[in-house]
């Protein structure tokens, strides 16, 4: 199987879908001539032209609303946010205009649109540029929320998101763009939205993670395997809908659960997973559920402070050893 970076996989997904469907277009800041602020849209302007690959002014509320209106009018726009931090300026359109219109219209007006871009911490870019929005968007009925880790999932899920008739939030990670993974070839390699993936099977403890934390979970699993602890790692891939079945059946096997996310703890993805696990697998739990999250503070700049504020492999190994004492 050929290897692709996440960056290339995302570009290929968009290019393939744009070849298949004239109504798919890409709009956002620097997506056309500059080839993407993080070079994700390389070559798209050249292939599809400026009608379909559109550089916008720096006008998040405006171009998000415009994208939603275009979707109501029959297009399937991909709206790229330079990063999701800036989408806070347009969250009204994502929620009030995109997510709610199908319902408010009694099913008359669908909004087929993808909002995508890097999410979460990057590398020492400070508090305003380093926030995970997974739990924010996962709160909203009418949205689907995806956050892939590997390049093949990035590609297959972005293709699925573009074909999906609903508004989809597609959370990428800047630090993963350059990482390479094996990716199957072919235009029909779609990954279904709403399905988690067991990326390592094990018997002693279940770890759920998404995006960059999947890699950290696998590293931690590798380390503790030397102590004879066999970890099962689930890549959630989809945050909403959440594949709770896969989590529950894993917990029924391992009897222990650790949830990892980079975002803040309060009302986070881990809180949701814990609540559902307690409801569906209470009797199977041998230990309290652990949540590993970013620290409950704005993200600091200094290297040591930033590292201390985000989940690290050592936090995960500690947590695994701890939970396995029960």
């Amino acid at each position: 199987m050929p290897e692709l970076t996440v960056r290339e996989a995302l570009r290929d997904a968009m290019a393939e879908e744009m070849r298949l469907d004239q109504d798919v277009c890409l709009i956002g800041e620097e997506v056309a001539e500059y080839q993407g602020a993080y070079k994700v849209s390389q070559g798209l302007l050249e292939e599809f032209g400026e009608l379909r690959v559109v550089d916008t002014p720096i006008t998040e509320a405006g171009f998000t609303g415009l994208g939603v209106g275009a979707a109501m009018g029959g297009l399937k726009p991909i709206v790229e946010f330079m990063t999701f931090n800036f989408a806070m300026q347009s969250i009204d359109h994502i929620i009030n205009s995109a997510a709610k219109t199908l319902y408010m219209s009694g099913g008359l007006i669908p909004v087929p649109i993808v909002f995508r871009g890097p999410n979460g911490a990057a590398s020492r870019v400070g508090a305003q540029h380093s926030q995970c929005f997974a739990s924010w968007y996962s709160h909203i009925p009418g949205l689907k929320v995806i956050s892939p880790w590997s390049a093949s999932d990035a590609k297959g899920l972005l293709k699925a998101a573009i074909r999906d008739p609903n508004p989809v939030i597609f959370l990428e990670n800047e630090l993963l763009y350059g990482e390479s993974f094996e990716v199957p070839e072919g235009e029909n390699e779609i990954v279904p939205i709403g399905k988690g993936k067991i990326v390592k099977s094990g018997s002693d403890v279940t770890i759920t993670a998404f995006s960059i934390m999947v890699g950290k979970a696998l590293d931690a699993a590798e380390i503790v395997s030397k102590d004879g602890i066999n970890v099962e790692v689930i890549d959630l891939r989809s945050i909403r809908p959440l594949d709770i079945e896969t989590i529950i059946s894993s917990v029924k096997k391992t009897n222990r659960l650790i949830s990892i996310e980079e975002g803040w703890p309060t009302s986070g993805i881990g809180a949701e997973i814990a609540a559902l696990t307690i409801k569906h697998a209470f009797d199977y739990l041998d230990a309290p559920i652990e949540r590993i999250t970013g620290l409950d503070i704005p993200l600091p700049y200094a290297e040591n402070l930033e590292r201390a504020a985000l989940p690290q492999v050592s936090n995960i190994t500690d947590s695994i050893r701890n939970i396995c004492q029960h």
Partner: peptide, 11 residues
């Protein structure tokens, strides 16, 4: 207003 602008974009 941006939504209507998007409808014009689609047109």
């Amino acid at each position: 207003v941006p939504l209507g602008t998007g409808l014009a974009f689609a047109n």
